[in-house]
Design a protein around this nucleic acid. Structure first.
Lengths: 374, 374
DNA sequence: TTGTACGCGTTATCAC
DNA sequence: GTGATAACGCGTACAA
């Protein structure tokens, strides 16, 4: 009765020549390898072999199938691909305990959110926490973690040397490892998910420049031990680079290292220091301990502009009260979530893991913090 | 030989009592309804009936199954769920043409990125563009779009009344519709993906307050027609509310409406206006046309602080040059991407569509714009 | 070199 | 009220 021939197939539109009648149909069905097999006059198996370059296909068949694949820009349904995979993947996440530094609390939300999305796809997480002031604790926790042979590890490494060793060990043991929050090294065995810390320092510099116009700025590192210092150093270098680029003599910049009680190594008090340097009108605090300096400013009614880091409760309170001018949001939740998702999608869907994922660096004032807390 | 009994099942851990030996096993396999059926001693079909409340299940079976489901916190594999669904969903996205306003260009990137992720899952998009200065164009395009009966629509509605009508029509026709960038109304037929425009105005106010300390600020609306004004009005209200809350008399605030040539309705020039109001030291531009005011500032070497909107090329250039102090990023790309994804996940996985998704409002200076451009 | 049959987890349908 | 079974799209082991 009817004789029809496929005439042209592309982008889910299909033209059929039917008894001299040219019909243009908009396909509302997905193409499957079965469809392609039919079009090419071969079996599903052959299409699959072409799709995945498994060889053992005649040139003629390969050519015909390849042409059709290109015409319809076929991509196999990723959903069906891992249907068969009934394994549960274990992703272990290694990061500091929260009771010393609430900075890490949002990571727990990220883990919860991640589990809600990926649990039913067969990915589970396990938390390993370490003492943020003990390289030994980091190393031991990492080793016991590695001995459980997880499918992947996401770690926030505070200690450069130890992290290097852990990263190398995972590489040797063929365990996938990603780093977030603190970069280990540009050319390492691990990729990095987080912010550009150098640029982060430049942003702080620009903000203080905007706030002050000129003066004496103190870069303050609070309550961090030496090994932990890499990311603070990167921020400091970025900060200084801004003013070097500006090539102006309007600013004097000093660097201060304080313990958690805001004392200097030589036990000098901050109060004494500021009395000796009355020209200081701006402060850049390189960690989430910004509130400690802001409390100092509040107590002693200092005339200081303060730029610091992170949306921890105490910082937000002081930001609202006006004792902190700007915060830079390092967004640990986003970092952890993106890190976990990247690993999961690699395990599940074979998506590749980029060498580095640089997340935006948010500038926060008293009016826009709310949206970043979600 | 061995007699074993399930003793306890939870969270993929399973304890087995085997010849007086208590064994604790970590499951590495996913639970399936088949597993649950076996545990409960029923068939898969019965489990499914309980899972989806289809009734026709005996109380005893229901109780037993429910208990197991809760114990292991079972969630059906969403992947297998749509395996059967071989339909291609059509999401149409309706937004202004770009040649008048490059603000909309990033939406194209969002569409590309969306298609890369969702094409193979069976979702396609179609673009419908309208003339941003013609309500008629919006209405006609929307109607021809609706007549194609798509599965869902995502629209950026500039015109309040027309958008209301379109939204209502879709609701009557059972077409899912989402709104992004411009909110239509709090209690409408459509949900909203975008920023809190009132809060956005408050952020601009805080920034100018930080920059100036006191003075005379002009709120400038550039090149926008009356119908388009809703979002500018919301920003203006937010801006003023900040200073009302502050309850200080340090600022005077004026509102200016300009056409695209920066002339007033009465043809007065901006230059003349500023000469008559030499006390103006700050400007809040409510649209992405911020560069026009910044160019004016550059040309006439005015001493003005400028806060405006959006990372369009011209704005970024002037931001880097220092003629714009801060930009607020409305992030049209993110808005479009989140909008499309939300609709797709609803169509594919039955995820629900929240009444509103309020995205963060990014503060941009010359040092952090790069990361937001991706 | 190619085709076939089966399994994966879920759900709709049909038979009992 | 319940159980058995087919179907979905893909990958693969095995048979031809």
């Amino acid at each position: 009765m009817f004789s029809s021939t496929y005439n042209c197939v592309f982008e889910n539109k299909i033209s059929i020549l039917l008894n001299d009648l040219f019909i243009f149909v908009l396909m509302t069905k997905k193409y499957t390898i079965k469809d392609i097999a039919e079009m090419a006059g071969v079996s599903k198996g052959t299409v699959d072999r072409v799709l995945h370059n498994r060889g053992k296909v005649s040139d003629s068949a390969k050519e015909k199938i390849t042409k059709i694949l290109e015409e319809i820009n076929f991509k196999p349904n990723p959903i069906a691909k891992n249907l068969k995979n009934n394994k549960i993947y274990r992703i272990c996440i290694l990061f500091p305990e929260s009771h010393k530094d609430s900075y890490w609390v949002p990571c727990l939300d990220a883990i919860t959110e991640f589990e809600e999305n990926y649990q039913s796809l067969g990915v589970k997480t396990e938390q390993y926490r370490y003492n943020s002031s003990s390289p030994q604790s980091f190393k031991e926790t990492a080793l016991s973690l590695i001995s459980t042979e997880p499918d992947a590890i996401l770690m926030a490494p505070l200690f450069f040397n130890e992290a290097q060793a852990v990263s190398k060990l995972c590489h040797d043991k063929n365990i996938i490892i990603s780093t977030f929050n603190n970069i280990i090294r540009k050319e390492g065995f691990s990729n990095y998910i987080g912010q550009d810390l150098f640029q982060s320092g430049r942003i702080a510099a620009k903000l203080l420049d905007t706030l002050l116009g000129q003066g004496h700025i103190a870069i303050i590192h609070v309550d961090e031990i030496v090994q932990n210092a890499t990311h603070m150093q990167q921020k400091e270098r970025g900060f200084k680079s801004y003013f070097e680029d500006k090539n102006s003599s309007s600013y004097k910049i000093s660097t201060i290292n304080l313990d958690k009680n805001l004392n200097f190594e030589n036990e000098e008090s901050l109060e004494a220091y500021f009395n000796n340097h009355e020209d200081i009108n701006g402060v850049f605090v390189t960690t989430s301990k910004t509130y400690k300096i802001a409390e100092f400013k509040k107590t002693y009614q200092k005339n200081l502009k303060i730029v610091g880091y992170d949306l921890v409760d105490k910082n937000i309170t002081l930001l609202k009260e006006g004792y902190i001018d700007f915060l830079i949001n390092q967004n640990p939740k986003q970092q952890a979530f993106v890190g976990l998702s990247t690993l999961a999608e690699h395990l599940l869907f074979d998506k590749d893991i980029p060498k580095s994922i640089l997340l935006p660096i948010d500038i926060i004032n008293s009016e826009n913090f709310q949206q970043y807390l979600e």
